[in-house]
Design a protein around this nucleic acid. Structure first.
Lengths: 129, 129
DNA sequence: CAAAATAGATTACGCGCGTAATTTTGTTTC
DNA sequence: GAAACAAAATTACGCGCGTAATCTATTTTG
């Protein structure tokens, strides 16, 4: 599993939103959110490359970078890590935590209800045939 | 916010399950799960002390350690961190991820349904008065 | 073509972490 | 009381991370 650091993940977000991009564009995209020198971002790009989290295709004198690790796979890795580390792998307590401790908008609640119902339909066919 | 490392959190789990305990008991409790020398665990205890995550009360020639950081607070910190880092702070996509990608037992689903309904009762009183 | 600019590659450096070993201090035993 | 033991305190060390600066090679400009 490709493990990326917090700082590296911020660079990944830029590429997940739009790829491929060259270093200059990535630096520009991060100018607002992160207070980093351009060299810092180059370092992060190189580390991501070495880890195989992104690819680099030469384009003249520059490289075009693109994600290899997908956002979904990374979210899955991080989520599973939290689940194991903090909730002993048990999903229900974790979901209970989120619903109790995070403020849910009405839209969140509606979404959650839809999810539950979708799962129930898939999992426990209520009236067979 | 008290930040503890992965290894440190394993020591915390022992104390969350049972406190106070002396170093020897903690070492014994970890003997099965972690493959650590006793010195390693002592180091982790000292780091947790310096961070203020645990307390140590002298008891003869030993210390009795107890959590200061609670399991619930730590779970909340870690959960929020994941939510921000990986899901841009938006809860619905995160919940969707969990329900889609993790295998839910029937008990999980039932629990989830109870949660949704509890939230709905609290949040959107369906038929006022 | 020489000089300047620039993208990328290499190197840097302090800090926390994982993983202990060594040293000190206080207690128990002969 | 000296020796042995044990618990705690201190020190160690390589690695990744955050955060760059410096070096190198190539392109652009005058």
């Amino acid at each position: 599993m490709i493990r990326i650091s917090e700082a590296e993940s911020r660079v990944m977000h830029v590429l997940w939103d739009n790829a491929p991009q060259d270093a200059e564009a990535i630096i520009a995209a991060l100018a607002g959110s992160a207070d980093w020198q351009d060299k810092t971002i180059k370092t992060l790009l190189n580390r991501l490359l070495r880890k195989g989290a992104i690819s680099a295709e030469r384009d003249g004198r520059r490289y075009l970078y693109a994600p290899v690790l997908t956002r979904e796979d990374w979210q899955a890795d991080e989520s599973r890590s939290l689940l194991e580390r903090a909730f002993d792998g048990r999903l229900a307590p974790m979901l209970a935590h989120f619903t109790r401790h995070e403020k849910l908008s009405e839209a969140d609640v509606a979404e959650l209800r839809r999810l539950v119902e979708a799962i129930e339909r898939r999992q426990t066919p209520r009236t067979p045939q």
